[in-house]
Simulated assay, not measured.
Amino acid sequence: MKYAPHILAERAVKLSCRDLWKVYGAHTDTFTDAAELKASSEKAGTLAALRDVHLDIRHGEIFVIMGLSGSGKSTLLRCLTRLVEPSFGKIMLDGVDLMTLSPKDLMEVRRHKMAMVFQHFALLPHLSVADNIALPLRIRGDETSQITKVVSELTALVGLAGMSERLPHQLSGGQQQRVGLARALAGNPELLFLDEPFSALDPLIRRELQDELMRLQARLHKTMVFVTHDFNEAVRLGDRIAIMKDGRVVQTGTPEEIVAEPTDSYVASFVAGVDQTRVISCGRIAAPARPFPYDVTVDGRKKIIEIASLVAGAHGPVGVKDASGQVTGEIDAATILRMMSVTAAERSAS
């Protein structure tokens, strides 16, 4: 389930970071402000994996962090959980700065509020499906009866009913990742971190698990931080996307905002192969409405692909309504054809 931008804007911030830096090198852990870190990051012998990152992640959204290898996306994910200690900055979860928590308090947050899904499944090979899913609940000391109930519910939820006693080597890659997803959900976390969870899978299984994740999100409404290097995956899953380069966030926005208005050539290179008709709304490309009634109207929030056949069969332009129901624009078959032809050219050139 993906949220409309105006709905997301009304939601409270769940997780945020400010002035977040991670610099590797001698004595970088002694710096007390971002200016010192910036100066250090420009010297030989140091590496700035994160540079002055600012993010706001809202309740119930799938927030995608993407970029090429080495851009800093996985480091950012690990810093947000403090699995990697940032060099400087604030990480706020429900208004509490995680950087100020003691190791004991941080462990409690991880056990009760956070969970992680890894790229390579990270299942214990000697444990059954049920025991792998139950592991975080046993670690935190839940009652056996409650663990049994949760495991039964989750194996059914992720499509593994009847497989509880199988070992990981008896499962396909997609089934193993379903176990990893169920294990992450077992503790009913508020925040789910997914580090390229589907990249090791073949394209068909990958798409199937993307569908599964969206189905689960429509039911569970978790806040998810999802890392990927695949822009098509980011567009398909993300309510919003942050694109990283050299440790910096270079653009943040909805998939439509990024596809329609890339900030620079780096972002544009990701956008080039995307089918824009599946991302861009008809309201964005509509011409101004004229002062006459339209026989057919469409919701301006609909994607172009969703209204293409309707427009093609209409006798003349189709009116486009804004969120309040007022006709503010129009769209015709020629406009859609131009966009489709540009998209096709981009795909053939890539």
Rank of each mutant, 00 (worst) to 15 (best):
T32G: 15
V158T: 06
S281G: 05
G173T: 10
V318K: 03
A314G: 05
A344H: 15
H112V: 11
L47I: 07
G313A: 01
V271W: 07
L220R: 14
A314W: 05
G313P: 05
P203A: 08
L37E: 03
P255C: 14
P291V: 04
K149D: 14
P103G: 08
P293A: 01
H120V: 07
V235I: 15
Y266W: 13
L93I: 09
R278A: 15
V150F: 00
L20N: 00
L50H: 03
S172Y: 13
Q146G: 06
D246G: 13
L93D: 11
E346F: 08
G60E: 14
A115H: 06
L154H: 09
S128R: 07
A218I: 06
V267M: 07
V296I: 01
M340I: 13
V271H: 07
M114K: 10
Q326P: 00
K303G: 11
D19N: 14
E143R: 15
V158A: 09
A286Q: 09
I258M: 11
K2F: 12
T100K: 11
A44W: 04
L213C: 02
D33I: 03
R166S: 13
M214R: 15
K90G: 02
A323P: 12
R347M: 14
S152N: 13
I205D: 00
T28A: 10
D195I: 12
D33E: 14
T254H: 10
I147P: 04
P189C: 02
